[in-house]
Every structure is written in structure tokens, then in C-alpha cells.
């Protein structure tokens, strides 16, 4: 039951991505190309997702705990720092170059398109590089914050 519900949660996300156009780089890049072939569709993806999530989260949080976990596990950090801003800026550069973001690419793996696989492998490579750089930095400055939690 647990496994099936988790699988179905992923399937709902994947179908949503497929219907929305978030996994179609041509469409994604056009959203950002206001000076060219502008396609505002992605604003509607974000709008639809945000309305449902913002309301749904508040309904869910009325419960004392999730169905299969002791507590709601929410990122608590409020720190606005260089890794957050610089990392996000770098993510945007990559998104603009390739047209895929991680949440779009993962479901798109199901199309078996080589381009998606290539992007995803590079994505994993980039994540491993960042991890290695963080480890090196943490070793040089042991006082620095250890492993950052990922949202």
C-alpha cells in the first residue's frame, strides 16, 4: 500500500509534467524568450501548481503528522547566503542553455529520448562535482556549516 501510494504520487507528478509542457525544452526556453518567440504557458504551470500546493499544504498541516512519518520534515533554514543565491543563478544559466530543469527531465526519461538521458547524466555529474567541492571546502574550513540539507 505504502509502496503503491508512493509510486502513484510520482506518476501524478510525471503526468502533470507531461501535460504541462515543463518537459519540453522548446516550450520552456520560449517562456523566457520574451524578446522572441514568447510562449507564456509556463506561468500557468506555476500558477496551477502553486494554488493547489499552497491550499493543499495548509489542509495537510492541520493533521498532527503525515500518514507514514512521525513528523513533517520541512527545511528550517532561513539563511540567505552566497551558495543559495549563486547556486540559483548558476542553475538558471544551465536551465537557459539546456532547456531542462531536474523536475522536467526526470519524468521525460520515460520518453527514452537520448537527449534527456544525456542531460540527466550531466546533471548527476554536476551534483557530484558540487558535493566534492563542498567536501573540500568543509575540510579546509572545519568551522563551516556541514552538509547542507536539500529541499
Amino acid at each position: 500500500m505504502k509502496h503503491l501510494a508512493t509510486f502513484l504520487t510520482g506518476a501524478v507528478f510525471g503526468l502533470g509534467i507531461a501535460i504541462s509542457g515543463m518537459a519540453n525544452p522548446a516550450k520552456v526556453v520560449n517562456f523566457f524568450d520574451v524578446a522572441g518567440a514568447w510562449d507564456p504557458s509556463l506561468a500557468f504551470v506555476m500558477g496551477g501548481a502553486l494554488i493547489v500546493t499552497a491550499i493543499g499544504y495548509r489542509l495537510v498541516w492541520r493533521r498532527t503528522r503525515p500518514v507514514w512519518a512521525p513528523t513533517f520534515d520541512l527545511p528550517q533554514s532561513r539563511r540567505i547566503d552566497l551558495p543559495l543565491v549563486g547556486g540559483s543563478a548558476l542553475f538558471g544559466v544551465g536551465w537557459g542553455i539546456a532547456g531542462f530543469c531536474p523536475g522536467g527531465a526526470l519524468p521525460a526519461l520515460g520518453t527514452l529520448e537520448p537527449a534527456v538521458l544525456l542531460f540527466t547524466l550531466a546533471l548527476i555529474g554536476g551534483m557530484l562535482i558540487a558535493r566534492a567541492l563542498m567536501l573540500v571546502a568543509a575540510r579546509r574550513a572545519p568551522a563551516a556549516e556541514p552538509n547542507r540539507s536539500l529541499t
Binding site: F91, G94, L118, A122, L123, G125, I129, A130
Partner: peptide, 20 residues
């Protein structure tokens, strides 16, 4: 795709998250 993927991977790891 490779350059973009690498930058996205590094960026989202430092930035602790992406579009989702």
C-alpha cells in the same frame, strides 16, 4: 545539454533546490 546539465547540477546543489 552536457554544459547545461553540469551547470544545473552544480547550481541546484549549492542552491539547495530547483523549480519543484
Amino acid at each position: 545539454l552536457v554544459l547545461g546539465g553540469l551547470l544545473v547540477g552544480i547550481g541546484v546543489t549549492y542552491g539547495s533546490g530547483c523549480t519543484s
